[in-house]
Amino acid sequence: MRKIKNPWLSKPGYHCFGCCPENPHGVGMEFFEDGEDIVCFWRPSARYQGWIDTLHGGIQATLIDECASWVVFRKLQTTGVTSNLNVKYRRPVMTTEPQITIRARLCEMKRNVAFIGVTIENSRGELCAEGEAVYFTATPDKAAGMGFTECVTEGDELLSM
């Protein structure tokens, strides 16, 4: 498993709710490449609860959407926009969990449209939510115009989580 470098860190105006480490209100996600999958290990907190000790469904959708976008960045080496997001909530994600795992994978490409499957598991490996994100991907020229150059890992070292 290799940590993915955030390609947006040096971009003026970057303040993403999902992945900007400097956004004090954001969820601060970091990503790893694990074979065909993009993975995020995230620690829930009460600040993102809906019901008592329960992670808000909108935050779960955000985690799914953000992890899917990193599939586009890393696996397709471009950027894009979400055109559709479907989430199935299977069991509650508790804000008391020490860590949850969000895992995304490219399932299908149709021209410039990416279909990405995403899951959220609790610390016991139980499926809590699953989603399908559909992304319109940008051409290389459009991606470059948005400031995207490349999405690489932080070297060859394997990380164990």
Rank of each mutant, 00 (worst) to 15 (best):
W42E: 10
Q99P: 00
L76S: 09
G35S: 12
L106S: 10
L85S: 11
R103S: 11
N23H: 02
A129D: 00
G13T: 06
S45F: 06
D141K: 14
R105V: 12
H25A: 08
A129V: 00
R43N: 10
K75M: 09
E108P: 02
D53A: 12
I38F: 11
I38K: 10
I120K: 01
A114F: 06
I120W: 01
R124Y: 04
V93H: 00
R47G: 07
A133L: 05
F136E: 07
G18L: 02
A46D: 15
D53T: 12
K142R: 14
E97F: 01
V72W: 07
R91I: 05
I102W: 00
P98Q: 10
A104T: 12
I100C: 11
H56N: 15
D37K: 12
V113R: 07
E121W: 00
H56G: 03
G117S: 14
N84R: 14
P92G: 06
E130L: 06
T96P: 05
N86C: 12
D34T: 13
E66S: 03
K110F: 08
G35Q: 11
K11S: 04
H15Q: 08
P21Q: 02
F73D: 07
M109D: 02
Y48M: 11
V71L: 04
D53Y: 07
D34S: 15
T82G: 14
Q60S: 01
Y89W: 10
K142M: 15
G147T: 13
G145I: 06
